[in-house]
């Protein structure tokens, strides 16, 4: 799919270089591949990794990961990300943030957009907001580990800059626990 590949490439460019390695290069939250968490040792023999069937009783299953379709990257969002990055380059951070806010109107659950907005606030030295926005991005990040690591690293920076040494350490620990990746 030429056009899709093009969109992916554009998106990577828009995000200031592809931050992903591996198979998934798209800057969308990849909760779509999120399954139930790995079974605990206690449950290893059980069937939790199977598709969950509706139980038919009062409390119904809701997290049927297979139902969540992988999302196409919306070209509108890509164009706004591009625009935002151009504004960042010319130090027009308010406009850069406004472009991300516009994109969030279109895709409010796109973890990448929240991450970008956090990045812009960090550049503006608005550390408290950066910290909160990165946490919001993590909420939306599903099981996208790389994005989670980036968010924790961003929070670490923001907290350090605010003089919250303990908070920064905690964030760093969370990032490390998720895996090692240079930021």
């Amino acid at each position: 799919m030429g056009s899709r590949a093009l969109i992916v490439l554009t998106a990577c460019f828009a995000l200031g270089g592809c931050v992903f390695g591996g198979q998934r290069a798209a800057p969308v939250d990849d909760r779509s591949v999120g399954g139930p968490p790995p079974p605990t040792p206690q449950q290893a023999s059980s069937t939790t990794t199977k598709r969950i069937e509706p139980s038919g009783v009062a409390v119904r299953p809701l997290a049927e990961p297979t139902e969540i379709k992988p999302r196409e990257i919306n070209p509108a969002v890509v164009s706004l990300l591009n625009r935002s990055n151009n504004y960042v380059r010319t130090k027009q951070h308010d406009k850069a943030a406004a472009s991300i806010e516009r994109a969030l109107q279109i895709e409010p659950d796109n973890a990448w957009l929240w991450h970008r907005l956090a990045g812009i606030r960090l550049e503006q030295a608005r550390y408290g907001e950066a910290d909160n926005l990165a946490a919001k991005s993590n909420l939306m990040a599903g099981n996208n580990r790389r994005l989670q690591i980036d968010n924790w690293r961003l929070m670490e920076k923001a907290r350090k800059a605010r003089g919250d040494g303990d908070g920064a350490k905690q964030a760093a620990a969370r990032a490390t626990a998720l895996g090692t990746r240079k930021y």
Partner: peptide, 29 residues
């Protein structure tokens, strides 16, 4: 309902309460 990090789904007997296996009668996630 894609869970954030720090949430885990378990098949549960809510009346007991206890976690159990997926194919268990009256268990709900």
């Amino acid at each position: 309902f894609a869970p954030p990090a720090g949430v885990e789904w378990r098949w549960t007997h809510i009346e007991k309460p206890a976690t159990t296996d997926a194919n268990c009668r009256d268990a709900v996630p």
